[in-house]
């Protein structure tokens, strides 16, 4: 069975892709591959963004393994005030 990953989106990104939170069955246990999958689905590359795995900010180029029930957050910096 594939690992289920929860993904939360914030700000401009959530609005543009019309999704605040979703659960997906990851095809691979490699985080970079999952991000690539999301890139293809939503064209995330157009946004400035950072990524957190289980509430910890991580670098995209890290070679990180994901597991069942992991939570990913994808967010841009906000500008307004």
């Amino acid at each position: 069975m594939n690992d289920m990953i929860t993904i939360k989106y914030f700000g401009e990104i959530a609005e543009a892709i019309n999704c605040k939170e979703e659960q997906i069955a990851a095809k691979s246990d490699n985080l970079s591959e999952l991000i690539e999958e999301l890139n293809e689905k939503y064209n995330l590359k157009r946004f400035p963004m950072i990524i957190a795995l289980n509430q910890n900010r991580i670098e995209l180029n890290d070679d990180i393994t994901i597991k069942n029930n992991d939570e990913l957050a994808i967010l841009p910096p906000f500008a307004g005030g």
């Binding site: 400035p48 950072i50 910096p77 500008a79 307004g80 005030g81």
Partner: peptide, 14 residues
């Protein structure tokens, strides 16, 4: 440390 790359194409309140 949070926003490492200079990300500037972000829209403001107005």
């Amino acid at each position: 440390c949070l926003f490492k790359k200079k990300l500037t194409n972000v829209i403001n309140c107005e």
